[in-house]
């Protein structure tokens, strides 16, 4: 199915512990699952899946159940800083492609980890990748997910970092038994705490106030008008007596100007 040589690329997928949006239970993170799925598509058995945290976390077995033989865990406390551990691990490995989700579903979820890693490693970074269409030893052809369902094609030279968008192919179902049988390679590290973050106050999210529609009318008649007015476009151009060709040309010019026709 895949062209020869594709599997020789070394891919690393970083995974984190997700959070179910309704129940709040820990789960396989949505985008990280997709990063593993894409890694499996690109590298097959050559895929390395890395997690920084607790090796006893049961959610890791959900990732392992996607068909992984082994999982690497860089052990650290819950308040630890993942960046130096990841950097040390990656600079020692011979990885070409680094995949991960856009934002973690737990912790600060600032989405900065891929950027900081890319900056430290000196690799180019692509955010919101929908698919990696083709990859060889030198470069990869990547599809980026843009807003409004659009796609952009970008060529990037290896090695590179990519964050995976929700538009990427969905993560496969996990198998419970194989997940339990997968080996976990534990790498012990010295404790590095995130000192800045310990000063923060963290509390359950308050619902955000809805913005009120403020009517600035000074008198009752204006308020009445603001409440009942029909939507009226200010100063639209009306073409009535021109020929159909001229009218079509006017529409066409507007579409070109708005760049919806390319």
């Amino acid at each position: 199915m895949l062209p020869n040589g594709e599997h020789s690329v070394k891919v690393v997928s970083l995974v984190s512990i997700g959070r179910h949006p309704q129940s709040g239970r820990s789960r396989r993170a949505e985008q990280d699952g997709r990063a593993v799925e894409l890694g499996l598509k690109l590298a097959g058995d050559n895929l390395t899946v890395v997690h920084a945290g607790d090796s006893q976390e049961p959610v890791l077995r959900q990732y392992a159940g996607m068909g992984l033989n082994a999982l690497t865990v860089l052990s650290q406390e819950a308040d630890g800083d993942a960046l130096p551990l990841m950097y040390d691990f990656l600079s020692q490995s011979d990885a070409n492609v680094l995949l991960m989700g856009i934002r973690a579903e737990s912790g600060e979820s600032s989405g900065m980890l891929p950027y900081l890693l890319a900056e430290k490693l000196g690799w180019p970074l692509l955010s919101r990748v929908a698919d990696i269409v083709h990859i060889n030893q030198r470069e990869a052809e990547v599809l980026l997910a843009l807003p409004r369902g659009q796609r952009r094609s970008v060529t990037v030279s290896l090695p590179f970092v990519a964050t995976i968008d929700n538009a990427a192919i969905e993560a496969r179902q996990t198998a419970f038994g194989p997940g339990l049988r997968a080996k976990i390679n534990l790498i012990e590290n010295q404790k590095i705490t995130d000192d800045t973050a310990t000063a923060w106050q963290i509390s359950p999210a308050k619902p955000r106030p809805k913005r009120m529609k403020v009517v600035k009318a000074k008198n009752a008649a204006d308020r009445f008008k603001a409440a009942t007015a029909k939507p009226a476009g200010g100063g639209g151009k009306i073409m009535k007596n021109e020929t159909p060709a001229e009218k079509a040309q006017a529409i066409f010019d507007l579409l070109l100007e708005e760049k919806v026709i390319r």
Binding site: E105, S106, G107, S109, Q201
Partner: peptide, 12 residues
């Protein structure tokens, strides 16, 4: 700011 997929508020 929001954190942990919108479930917590972080004051900093």
């Amino acid at each position: 700011c929001r954190g942990a997929s919108g479930s917590v508020d972080i004051v900093r």
